[in-house]
Nucleic acid binder design. Structure first.
Lengths: 216, 216
DNA sequence: TAGATTGTTAATCGATTAACAATC
DNA sequence: TAGATTGTTAATCGATTAACAATC
């Protein structure tokens, strides 16, 4: 009966993971919550509370071992589960995702790329040949991927998602402007570039308002 | 002395904006906080509280006028400020951004694309010819963009950001794996595709744990 | 007017921070 | 042992939800 960990905590885990990776890369072996909190601009309390949702990874008087903590977070995030993912939609977004995550992401392997446009069939993206979308069903029956990256036009998104669910997909990373809703069976992360841009616009206009305000 | 609006509220505004845009597109003229809350899977209270951070946009007994509310949120977000943006880095991510936001985003115009790779000079991306990065200083002096989209390799990110700040950029949308920190002068939104993927991995592994748990 | 629904205050809930005993 | 720093409990703060008077 492990109580559910709050979304706020989960949302911070990838950031911890990134900072710990960087510390590891530059050869730092141990770090205290205090030092990490200063680097990351959060409180040391928050770091300790967040981690203690999942167990004690540190040692009194010592702090945290960077490599061990990073690997622990990796397990919490399920990056060691060997998830298999397919990419549907080989447009700009799909290609960017395939190429970028090849270098940066752990925790899953991209095993196939699909597109319904015959002109894209056979095209090479980061070592994968684009397959026709009509083959996705048989491919899934054989290879059993759990995740799908959806980079299709928004008009096609819902239909494609439903089909993939019926073939066994359990998690979607959705790049379409239209949101996909999670369900009991299916996990969803929606990525909206335009939301980020709007937030930036707000922050910029807020700064301008403040400058005007302080002048007046 | 307008009290600062919390980040939670700001983060939700683009989502309201998207839903209102869709309602407008399908011809719906008015909506109550209750009906909107059901569509968006939030509480009606939250919608009313969020909006009332900025003023009263509705009418008792009627609800909200979709078009008016959408335009009001657009103004809150600064989408009517006519911000000008440049894109630095014409790799996969940069091209995707340039093409995608051309269709989806309002609130700023992309006025120039730069890359330091001579092979990319003159390349056409969504109607823009890629310019050499060496020309960014004079271009900025002439055109005065406020925003920059950073889609450069992480090794170059900090140097490029500092240069652009010195030329007058006030806001960054940063796609690099490495975070850029905001300052008093400069607004920043960091976009991390790999974070989204890790969150999805967590959600998927959580679901699998729950299934095992309920079986045992 | 009666019904609907907002704007807004009050109550609840949860997340963050502070504090400190435990312990390496 | 003394010093450092965690794990964890308690206190604070802020965000969400509920309730309802105002009003269209």
């Amino acid at each position: 009966m492990n109580k559910k960990v709050s979304a706020s905590v989960i949302n911070r885990l990838p950031r911890y993971y990134r900072y710990l990776s960087e510390l590891e890369n530059i050869g730092i072996e141990r770090i205290s919550s205090r030092d990490l909190s200063e680097k990351m601009n959060v409180t040391a309390s928050q770091i300790r509370q967040d981690l203690n949702c999942f167990g004690g990874f540190g040692q009194q008087g010592y702090g945290y071992n960077v490599k061990y903590l990073k690997e622990s977070i990796s397990k919490i995030l399920g990056l060691d589960c060997g998830y298999k993912a397919i990419l549907v939609g080989a447009g700009n977004m799909g290609r960017t995702f395939a190429v970028n995550t090849k270098f940066e992401s752990r925790g899953f392997s991209l095993i196939g790329i699909f597109d319904s446009d015959p002109a894209k069939e056979g095209m090479d993206i980061g070592g994968h040949k684009v397959m026709p979308y009509s083959k996705v069903k048989s491919f899934m029956a054989e290879n059993k991927p759990q995740m799908a990256i959806l980079a299709v036009p928004k008009s096609a998104m819902r239909r494609v998602a439903e089909e993939l669910i019926s073939y066994g997909i359990k998690a979607f990373l959705n790049f379409s402007y239209t949101e996909l809703s999670p369900s009991a069976d299916v996990a969803v992360e929606n990525v909206h570039l335009s939301d980020s841009l709007m937030r930036l616009s707000y922050k910029l206009s807020e700064k301008e308002r403040n400058i005007e305000g302080s002048e007046g």
